[in-house]
């Protein structure tokens, strides 16, 4: 679809290939509920803008830290608890933490995430659990 050529022949061959791959995948039993969580799409429409806004705020904070001559960092390790129920929710939460500049999830076990934050304030914000609640709402009751 991305090449800009739209012959009937090419479209038919492409559709056949897609069907073949789906058939193979379902024979190999790799198609499951986690594969493509399309039911989250509706809630994703307001979750993603929120996440982008968080990323912009945190990115500007980290940029200020980098540009200030004294390099005021206070690296902190902290354990946070993920309140999500499904694997998709926890992975979304861990990925959101990592994607936000200033915090990186280092280790993940069951429902506990060890996070490395570049400043103590960042770690405290995360421990307050706002992002956790938003991701939980994003996950909602629909998951699993």
């Amino acid at each position: 679809m991305l090449s800009g050529h739209y012959n009937v022949l090419l479209l038919v061959i492409g559709a056949l290939c897609s069907l073949g791959v789906v058939a193979l995948a379902s024979r190999m039993a790799v198609v499951d509920k986690e594969g493509h969580p399309i039911y989250l799409l509706g809630r994703a429409l307001w979750f993603w803008p929120w996440l982008i806004w968080e990323i912009i705020k945190a990115g500007i904070d980290v940029s200020k830290i980098i540009l200030s001559p004294s390099l005021p960092i206070s690296p902190t390790l902290i354990n946070v608890r993920a309140s999500q129920k499904s694997a998709v929710g926890i992975v979304t939460y861990a990925n959101s933490i990592t994607l936000t500049p200033g915090t990186v999830s280092v280790e993940l076990e069951d429902d506990e995430i060890t996070v490395h934050a570049i400043t103590r304030a960042g770690a405290d914000d995360l421990a307050e659990g706002h992002m956790d609640r938003v991701v939980s709402r994003f996950e909602g009751e629909g998951a699993l």
Partner: peptide, 23 residues
């Protein structure tokens, strides 16, 4: 980050709030 932690490189910390416990 996980690979670095498993390789035994410990981060330089100002505050360790994990109580020494890493998940």
């Amino acid at each position: 980050a996980q690979a670095a932690l498993h390789a035994g490189i410990l981060p330089k910390l100002d505050h360790d709030k994990t109580g020494g416990h890493i998940a």
